[in-house]
């Protein structure tokens, strides 16, 4: 990547001012995506770069009874170093599966959520949890549900000219959390994808279910999820087949390639199987 100017702000206010002056500047937190060989091959004209590694406000982590707020430049290692139970377990498991410990010392949560062209591993799990992202531009700030970053055709629609400052992650127990990575373990390649399934049951009834399959594009259907809520666990064979049929139709409508759709449906079937097995008899 060709860089003609590097701006290293040391406060959030300096960062927002720099971004206002250079709305086309590349934002760099850990740089693991930007400086990996794969991305370096996409070099175009020289660009200004704003480095976020010296902005302490972007590394702040706090927790209330209802949610955890994580600064966007918090590294993945810093997330894993938080005491057990601070983060939801399914998120922790996903973060542990990203790269090696050395890469996680550089990579940041905000960077993982801001890669153009492809959803990275933290996106599906946080979207399933209905996490919110705060974007700031000048003095204006807005909270965006991560699901709204799924653009037309299911591809990422990352806001430009705005700074992702923090991510608010709702807390809550999930009866079943599955995160299945497809691709080489630890290598964050362009061909990997992630399947996430979260389910909550109360008195043998499914009270909440979320599932996303993401890579080049994200596949999620809130309608199908809503149709499953309220059903008794274990789901009957007919209910399972109806849900799978609905997901198959959704994949076809979303233009998901057949191979990915087949894999997705297999993972949904397996997840429902696990959900049924976990149901008390």
């Amino acid at each position: 990547m060709l860089i003609d100017e590097v701006i290293v702000p040391s406060t959030l206010s300096e960062t927002l001012t720099a971004l206002k002056r250079n709305p086309e500047a590349v934002l760099c937190a850990g740089g693991t995506e930007l400086f990996s060989e794969e991305s370096a091959g996409r070099s175009g004209p020289a660009r200004s770069l704003i480095s976020l590694h010296s902005v302490p406000e972007l590394r702040h982590v706090s927790r209330t009874d209802h949610y955890v707020e994580v600064g966007s430049a918090t590294t993945l290692s810093e997330l894993l170093a938080l005491k057990e139970g601070f983060l939801p377990d399914p998120l922790r498991d996903v973060v542990r599966g990203i790269g090696t410990f050395a890469v996680r010392n550089l990579a940041t949560l905000g960077g993982n959520l801001s890669c153009p062209g492809r959803f990275r591993d933290c996106f599906p799990i946080l979207a399933c949890m209905d996490a919110l992202a705060e974007y700031r531009q000048g003095t204006a700030a807005r909270w965006v549900n991560l699901n709204r970053l799924i653009g037309t055709g299911g591809t990422p629609d990352i806001p430009r000219g705005e700074l992702l400052t923090r991510i608010r992650i709702p807390l809550g127990e999930w009866s079943l959390g599955i995160a299945h990575k497809i691709g080489f373990p630890r290598i964050n390649s362009r061909s990997s994808s992630l399947f996430v399934f979260l389910a909550r049951t109360e008195k043998r009834v499914l009270s909440s279910i979320r599932l996303i399959f993401s890579g080049d594009q994200a596949v999620r259907s809130r309608e199908i999820e809503a149709s499953l809520v309220g059903k008794k666990i274990p789901l009957s064979a007919r209910e399972t087949e109806t849900a799978l049929g609905a997901f198959a139709a959704h994949c076809a409508q979303a233009g998901v390639p057949d191979s990915s759709a087949t894999r997705f449906l297999g993972l949904v079937r397996r997840a429902i199987g696990q959900l049924n097995e976990g149901a008390p008899s």
Binding site: I3, V6, G31, F35, T100, A102, V103, N105, L106
Partner: peptide, 18 residues
């Protein structure tokens, strides 16, 4: 691998300005 400010990181992903 190198140690950068006490953290072990892959030097190939660390840009000069950092």
């Amino acid at each position: 691998l190198v140690s950068l400010n006490g953290r072990t990181v892959p030097a190939c992903l660390v840009p000069a300005f950092r």
